[in-house]
Write a protein that binds this DNA or RNA. Sequence first.
DNA 1: CCCACTGTTTCGTGGTCGTGAACCGGGTGC
DNA 2: GCACCCGGTTCACGACCACGAAACAGTGGG
Lengths: 163, 163
Amino acid sequence: MTDVAVVRLPDESRQLEELRRRGIPRLALVAPHAPPFTPVDLLEDWVRLPAAPADVRSRVLALAGRADESLERRPELTDDRLLRYGRWWVALAPADARLMAPLVDRFGSVVGRGELAKAGWPDGLPSRNSLDVQLGRLRRRLKGSGLTLHTVRSRGCALAQGN
Amino acid sequence: MTDVAVVRLPDESRQLEELRRRGIPRLALVAPHAPPFTPVDLLEDWVRLPAAPADVRSRVLALAGRADESLERRPELTDDRLLRYGRWWVALAPADARLMAPLVDRFGSVVGRGELAKAGWPDGLPSRNSLDVQLGRLRRRLKGSGLTLHTVRSRGCALAQGN
DNA sequence: CCCACTGTTTCGTGGTCGTGAACCGGGTGC
DNA sequence: GCACCCGGTTCACGACCACGAAACAGTGGG
């Protein structure tokens, strides 16, 4: 089961930022006289101190459960070139859609550059680095989606969840 | 904004059941010595008593926000050419209504230009780009509705929520 | 008669995609 | 330690084309 981070506020707000950036589920323990907390997403919760250990444990478990659910989300690419991921979506350009197809198909694992080239340009790459350029453009499109296109040096690319 | 119900546990667990059944967002105020609470869905939260009013208010607001987000509204097009979306509405011109029909029908996914043309002008397009012009007028009518007519280049259009 | 509706044209703009080049970090051989 | 290269990233440019907006005109209903 996914780990949940616990931070004390307002002391550890730096760490909170970091956890948010990395998409890790987190529980804030808010000091007695600090202002109420406002979660920024569904992977965040808070309790007012002092809190019973059982209460904290309960919230941590709830967060872990939520995180596991959200991990099961998979992107989907329709033949109208709509890429959906949760409630987020974009319309992909034709080239981007062809490239994205095998990546979505094998979501979370590595797709070789050769295979990507084949998918994007069935009759040969037009130029030496057109694949890289196109991958760059694809990456830009995924901004704010919760999806990331990771590169595995000399192996290929992998589409995965994360920012 | 959506209303949030507040119940006291364990006293009012009957009411809690009812609220869950009806899908209303709810905050449980849990008595000091009652066991920790486990939310059953995302429209549920809890706080241990005694709790500061500000804390309760903060959680109620968070729940209301979540409820609004998760609210999935669909537009509706009546026979007398009224397009409704939530509490917003417009009267559409005949041509706009014919165009809008398939878009509303397949809300959130792409409708091909061919299909749109067929819907708007059953016996052939009067001119090369009259479809584009009409789509433009339609867009203008949707201003401020919370609906947007997105174009998927060389595929068609998709009606979706957003501004 | 006026005004909403709709067809038509023209022109602008913004997305798409190939291409060349600069850049950069890590690894390798000397 | 140093130069070098390899794999990858990013930029800017330009051609092409689908689409969008504005402006104008004809028409028909209230």
